[in-house]
Design a protein around this nucleic acid. Structure first.
Lengths: 349, 349
DNA sequence: GAAAAATATGAAACCGATTTTACAATTATT
DNA sequence: AATAATTGTAAAATCGGTTTCATATTTTTC
C-alpha cells in the first residue's frame, strides 16, 4: 500500500510537505505543490483515513441511528440528514436498530470506538446511560424524533402531542365518539405524547375515556406492527366496536388495516383509521390513510445542521429543543375525503 | 480521553499486557487479566478503533453501496447483508448513491481511504475503473444485483433475462400481443437483460418487435421513476396503445401506473402492468402489481457470505457468479388474478 | 547593504493501539 | 539440583498520517 513516505520520496520532499499540500496548508511553494500533486496522481495515493483520524482526532463521519430503515419516515429523515452533512464533507454511518435496544447499545459502542464526530439518534431505549456515555466523551448528540427527558442535549422532534390532539379532533369533528388508540410503548416519547394528546382531545370534547379502547403495547421495545395487528384483533373482540382507530404510526396502521380486512370490516365505512407519518411513494398514486404527516426531511436536515454546527464550534453551549408541527393530511381512511378540505390546516390529497 | 496507557497504569501492567487481554491472546495470568478488566471497567475504557485499524490493517467494516435506499428491494438486500455480516462482527457502512455515479465514485474514494474491509455494490456507473481501483488494492468486491462484464469479481444477482422472458410469456399467455416495455438505461445489466428477455419472449411467440413500444431511458444514469412517468406518457401518445406494459422495476411501475390513471386508463382492464421487484410492506395487505420477485434478502445474505469468507481467507481465488432465479407472483395488475394459479412456478397472492 | 520579517521545508514527536523481541519467572525434565 | 522448556510480562518498534519546532532561504524594510 502506498504511503505518504512513498509520495514524499517520489516528489523529492519530506512527508510533512506532502501533508501540507494534501491539507491545503499555506506556505508551500507553488512548484513544490505541483510536484507533490503529480506524485500523488502517479501513485494513485489515497491517504489512510485511520491514521489521519488518529492524529487529527476527528473522523468526518456522523452516525444516524434509526429504529427502522424500511420505514419511509426514517428514510426521509436520512435524506434530509445526509443532504446537509454531505455538504460539509461528512459521511453518514447509518445504524438501523430494528427497534432493538441491545442493537442500539452495540452501535453506540462502535460509534465511541470509531470516534465518530457526532450522533443523531431516534432511540428505542428506556434507559439513557449509553447516551450519557457518549455525551460524557464530548461527542455531540442530537435526539431525533424521540425525546428523552433526563438528558441535557439538543432535540429535534415533531409535536406528537398537538398532532394527536388535532388528529383526534378531526375524528370527533366527523362525528366519531367511540375512538380507540393503538400505539407503541409509552417509554417512547412519541407514543406517550400521542396517548396524552388522544386523552386530551377526548376530554376537551367531554367524551369519557374507555380504557378498553386504549391499546398500548407493553411487550415491545419500539413500535411493532406485529403487535399492532394483535392489539387490533383484541380490540375487535370487544362487545362494542370503536368507530375509529387512531394508530401510533404508519406501519402499525397497515397491520391494523389488515386485521380489520380479515374480520371483514371496511375502512372507513365500518371503522375509520388515522395514523401518524406517511407512506410516501405508495401514496403518491393511491393515497389512503388520513395521517398526521411530520416534516421528516426537515427533521433530518435540522438535526444535521445542529450537529455540524456543534462540531465546528459555531454554537454556544445552550441546548436547542426544536419542535416541528405536523400537518393533517386528509385522505380516504377516515371517511372524510372530500368533506373537510379547506378547514384550517388541512389539505386534500 | 482514556487510552490504553491509562488502563495499564491503573492495572499496574504494561500497555502490551492490556492489549493482550483485550484481544484475548493467551499467556496472560488469570489474576492479571482480572486486574486489567477491572481497570477497563472503572475507567470506562473504549479502545480507539482508528488506532487499532491502523496497526491491524483491518476495520471490521464492510460497505454496501445501493442506488436507492428508499426502495424496499434494497432494504431487503440490506437486511440480508447486515444479518450475515453482523454475525461475524462486521458493521456495515450503507452508501446510498441515489442512482448517481458521481456519488458512487465519492463513496468509493471514502471506502478506500477508510480502509474498509470489503465492498458489495449495486453500481450505477458505466465505467468500472473506480471499482478496478478497489480491486487493485486487494479489497474484496462483490457485485450485487447489477453485473459488469469487464470486471473479474464475484457476482450475486438475479436472472433478469429469464425473469423477463417468463414475465412476458405470462402476458402472452394471457392473450396480450401488443406489449410495451419501459425500463432504465441499458448500461445497467438488469435493465439490459430485461430488454433482451422481453425481445426473446416476443420472438419465441412470433410477435414482431415494434420499436415504438420499447421505451429505454437514455437520459438517466439509473432507474428513474420520474423518467418512467415521462416515458409512459410518450407511450400513451401512440395512435395504437399497448395492451400491456412491462416495467423495469417496482418504483418505475408505480409512476407508470400513475401516468395511466391520469389518462383515465384502468389497470388492468385497459392496460396491464407487470414489473420486477416487490413493494413489500404495502402489498402485504393490498397486493396489486404482478411482479417478478427477486430473492432480495438472500441476495444480500449471499453477497455478505462471500465477502466475509474472502476476507477471512476461506476461499480460493476463483470467482463466484451466483445467479438467483426470480419468482413470478401473479396479482391483479395483469388481469389474471385468479386465472393462472397452479401454473408452473406461479403463486397466488 | 545589513537587519528584520516572512516564507518554505525538513526532522522529530505524536496520535493510540498491536506486535515483535527480549527477558524474567515459573514449571517440567532428567 | 541443574538444565530445558514454558509462561508471563515489559520495552520498543510499528502502523501512516499530522503537527510542532527548528532552520534555511527569500523578501522586505530602513
Amino acid at each position: 500500500m502506498i504511503t505518504i513516505y512513498d509520495v514524499a520520496k517520489k516528489a523529492g520532499v519530506s512527508p510533512s510537505t506532502v501533508s501540507r499540500v494534501l491539507n491545503k496548508h499555506d506556505n508551500v511553494r507553488e512548484e513544490t505543490k505541483k510536484r507533490v500533486e503529480q506524485a500523488c496522481r502517479e501513485l494513485n495515493y489515497v491517504p489512510n483515513a485511520n491514521a489521519s483520524s488518529l492524529r487529527k482526532k476527528n473522523t468526518k463521519t456522523l452516525a444516524l441511528i434509526v429504529p427502522e430503515i424500511k420505514n419511509p419516515f426514517f428514510t426521509s429523515i436520512l435524506e434530509g440528514f445526509e443532504g446537509r452533512t454531505g455538504k460539509s464533507g461528512y459521511i453518514t454511518l447509518i445504524c438501523n436498530t430494528n427497534e432493538n435496544s441491545k442493537k442500539e447499545k452495540d452501535f453506540i459502542k462502535t460509534i465511541i470506538a470509531k470516534r465518530i464526530d457526532g450522533v443523531a439518534i431516534s432511540t428505542v431505549s428506556k434507559s439513557s446511560s449509553h447516551l450519557q456515555a457518549v455525551i460524557n466523551r464530548d461527542i455531540p448528540v442530537v435526539l431525533l424524533d424521540r425525546d428523552i427527558d433526563d438528558l441535557d442535549v439538543d432535540v429535534v422532534c415533531g409535536d406528537s402531542y398537538q398532532g394527536a390532539v388535532d388528529l383526534v379532533n378531526h375524528l370527533i369533528g366527523l362525528g366519531h365518539r367511540r375512538i380507540a388508540i393503538i400505539t407503541g410503548p409509552v417509554h417512547l416519547s412519541t407514543s406517550r405524547e400521542r396517548v396524552e394528546g388522544y386523552k386530551q382531545a377526548l376530554n376537551n370534547a367531554n367524551i369519557s375515556i374507555d380504557n378498553n379502547l386504549i391499546k398500548i403495547d407493553k411487550k415491545s421495545e419500539g413500535f411493532s406492527s406485529k403487535r399492532a395487528y394483535e392489539m387490533a384483533k383484541e380490540l375487535l373482540e370487544l362487545p362494542e366496536l370503536p368507530s375509529a382507530i387512531f394508530v401510533g404510526n404508519n406501519f402499525m396502521a397497515i397491520k391494523v388495516y389488515q386485521a380489520l380486512i380479515e374480520e371483514n370490516l371496511k375502512v372507513p365505512d365500518d371503522i375509520a383509521i388515522v395514523c401518524f407519518d406517511d407512506l410516501n411513494f405508495m401514496y403518491e398514486i393511491e393515497p389512503f390513510f388520513t395521517t398526521m404527516r411530520q416534516p421528516a426531511f426537515t427533521m433530518g436536515k435540522m438535526a444535521a445542521e445542529i450537529l455540524v454546527n456543534k462540531i465546528e464550534g459555531k454554537y454556544e453551549n445552550n441546548k436547542q429543543k426544536v419542535k416541528l408541527q405536523p400537518e393533517l393530511v386528509i385522505r380516504k381512511s377516515c371517511g372524510a375525503y372530500k368533506n373537510n378540505v379547506g378547514r384550517k390546516g388541512c389539505r386534500e390529497e
